[in-house]
Nucleic acid binder design. Structure first.
Lengths: 240, 240
DNA sequence: TCCCGAAAGTGTTTTAACGACACTAAGGTA
DNA sequence: TACCTTAGTGTCGTTAAAACACTTTCGGGA
């Protein structure tokens, strides 16, 4: 960890040596959600050492784009989606993490509505959705990347209203509660959850109800950004 | 932001082109604390475009080290200190952020005890401590880096006991309260703060008191890691 | 040695959030 | 029309947080 502490001679970033070989990539943890649980979009690696193993979609960063652009490009290539919630998480940099050479990668996660994805399915798409809890290993250090992104997602879900990014525009209270339960891995009390959510004043009643269910249909709600912007204040959002 | 979304042809990270020129650096936000407030260690840039302006210590990442090693190396070079609390924060990657070429930088912050630093002062040291609140601009995008690191520090200070890293081994309750006040930028109630801190059970009474003060001397405390490890549970630590 | 200044140290009361908990309402189906 | 299934709703006890003032202890100076 803090083993090699030589007092190096002066080095300056403005001396960018031409023999300096090091590549930078982005890797994308693309989360989706359906009734079964939290999903992540994975591809099969074609790197020899990890042939056929599941891995995260990613790519080298082009010289003319920043990291966010690169991550958006990868996301669009794999899902056809743009304007998606996305956040940078962490850089992974172990010297031997990639068999083909020195590659530092920056992890992003994003939240997509899984049905919208299906509709705009990319023709060359090899990617598929996998249940997050069922994933035991991935190629490279991608399992660690996934774990970090999931932890970050859980943190954010507690502190601001991003769960909506994973749901259709109109959703029931049961859906949003179930989403919180599966993403955070906790069981929540229906009445307390609803009380809390209503007190935050970020939901708008659509005036519609579920259709074609053989029981009392639930009201549909929509997330209202204006309400949130006004109400947002310091502190936690949903601290379970 | 999400402007250029071309559907690129397949690109793979294992095809690492030799013409691929892009450098990676680390930049270190080294925080210190004394009675006056929160400080950060800065140097004067010698990059032509920013000649003489204040900037964060940093360096290119060597081919044989990971990012944390690189950040530790920079830290030791500037302060002489090893085994310091350090956390990766965010990568900064705007294409034009560095005048000498394409450099992606990963920001780390670390917490050092400012007096310990002074004692082991590096002979060639050009770095100096500056009050964080007095810094209005820095070279490159370093002000944004500083702001991000400060925000991260504030978050961590609320969720786990890292304030101790900025203080001497033995400290008074007033010192730790003042640290929380200046880092978080809030005013805290003495009795409530002490009650909360004691309830967390992470402090150990040294059995000593302040010396040579012309008023009632305060007890000295020490942070006890074992107590913390046992007691640590989910949720916030100090939610002010 | 007595008085003063200055910071240390200590509890109680009020208020807000959280957790636990069970019944009635509404629609679909047989 | 009876029944199945999920929707929807309120109260009470517990716990955490915020507000708030006086006594103690030491050093220094008269």
């Amino acid at each position: 960890m803090s083993g090699e502490h030589r007092n190096d001679p002066e080095r300056r970033k403005d001396r960018i040596a031409s023999e300096y070989h090091l590549a930078v990539s982005v890797d994308c943890v693309i989360f989706g959600y359906d009734e079964e649980g939290l999903k992540v979009l994975l591809i099969k690696s074609d790197t020899p050492d990890y042939q056929g193993q599941l891995s995260l979609p990613g790519d080298l960063v082009h010289p003319t784009e920043n990291l966010k652009n690169a991550a958006s490009r990868v996301l669009e290539y794999r899902t056809g989606l743009t304007d998606v919630y996305m956040e940078q998480v962490l850089a992974f940099s172990e010297v031997d993490r990639h068999p083909a050479g020195r590659v530092i990668t920056i992890a992003y996660y994003s939240l997509v509505e899984i049905d919208e994805y299906a509709a705009q399915k990319h023709s060359r798409m090899e990617a598929e959705w996998y249940d997050v809890n069922a994933i035991k290993e991935l190629a490279f250090d991608h399992k660690a990347i996934l774990d970090n992104c999931l932890t970050r997602l859980q943190l954010r879900l507690r502190e601001k209203p991003i769960g909506f990014e994973l749901l259709p525009d109109k959703f029931t209270l049961k859906q949003i509660q179930h989403l919180y339960e599966v993403v955070l891995g906790v069981k929540l009390d229906k009445r307390n959850f609803r009380r809390k959510l209503k007190s935050l004043n970020v939901l708008e009643d659509c005036g519609e109800r579920q259709k074609a269910v053989n029981h009392r249909p639930a009201k549909l709600y929509r997330f209202n950004m204006e309400k949130y912007q006004k109400k947002k204040k310091k502190g936690m959002f949903m601290n379970f």
